[in-house]
Design a protein around this nucleic acid. Structure first.
Lengths: 147, 147
DNA sequence: TGAGAAATGGAGCCGTTTGTCTAATTTTAG
DNA sequence: CTAAAATTAGACAAACGGCTCCATTTCTCA
């Protein structure tokens, strides 16, 4: 339904939201979210390009949210890596339909619109309630102290 | 969002619903729905395996719905070719979560559940209202007469 | 100023999806 | 019984997503 990449991006974003003023290295995020590190690196780059996170090279560098977790929605994260695209014109390219979608495509697009709406309304901070995303017990000791 | 294959399957099903007691050949369906014929053949086989359509070889054969269009939902069609799968356990395989999903995965699964529900409630006959799926003017003369 | 820590960018691998082609099989018409 | 019409089965090709690896660049600290 949703791509693996979107899942990875969301895990990373939720993790970073847990302590959003701090910068985490790719390795730290990978360890906590169980996302393969080299691939996570690409995902984080996409998030950086979308300006959802800010990257900093060198010692003490890493990735951090570019704004507060309450200002970043699930939709923004998904759209940064694997955009949800609406049906704006007839996929069969029929002149007859023009701008109107047939019942089938309207139904599909309505469902997509609903998803968009739900995900736009939910922010990273909404996802921090009660149950943590990740296995804190598995984290390295040095990282643990920072959370 | 949804796979190309699912789109193709739905187009074919809607088309067959327009005259559901008749059998259409792969070629006829391909022509009307603009789905590549050799690939459509695979899709139709999947629909046949799911018993949504019935196939008949030889002269005068083809594919036809196995029951009335009001008894076939969008969800059934999609699940036949590219199943919507729910999140039943933590994707990170964390012991800590057990059967409970964290906020992130619960949110994603809820959205998926909503899609499922909408698509389960909509039948092929609901998709036949007013605007036709396909470019009837582009169909061969012999096929046109049958619709 | 140098060393090491980190992100960046590009090439490339593997499996799945999408799509094509061909040969074999079934079925009906005549 | 035969020929044509149709599905079925299988191998094959191209494109894409997920993933890895490595060389390069940028940055900080001592």
């Amino acid at each position: 339904m949703f791509s693996q990449t979107a899942e990875y991006a969301l895990r990373a974003m939720v993790f970073m939201s847990m302590n959003y003023e701090q910068a985490f290295t790719t390795h730290q995020i990978s360890e906590a979210t169980k996302v393969p590190a080299p691939y996570l690196s690409k995902v984080l780059q996409a998030l950086a390009k979308a300006e959802l996170v800010h990257s900093q090279r060198g010692i003490g560098g890493g990735f951090a949210l570019s704004r507060g977790p309450e200002e970043i929605s699930i939709l923004q994260v998904i759209n940064a890596v694997d955009p949800i695209c609406r049906i704006t014109s007839c996929p069969l390219k029929l002149e007859a339909h023009g701008k109107h979608l047939c019942a089938l495509h309207k139904k599909i697009d309505d469902a997509t619109a609903n998803i968009e709406k739900t995900f736009a309304k939910t922010s990273m901070s909404d996802l921090l309630v009660s149950v943590p995303l990740c296995d804190v017990s598995g984290l390295s000791h040095s990282l643990l102290k920072t959370i």
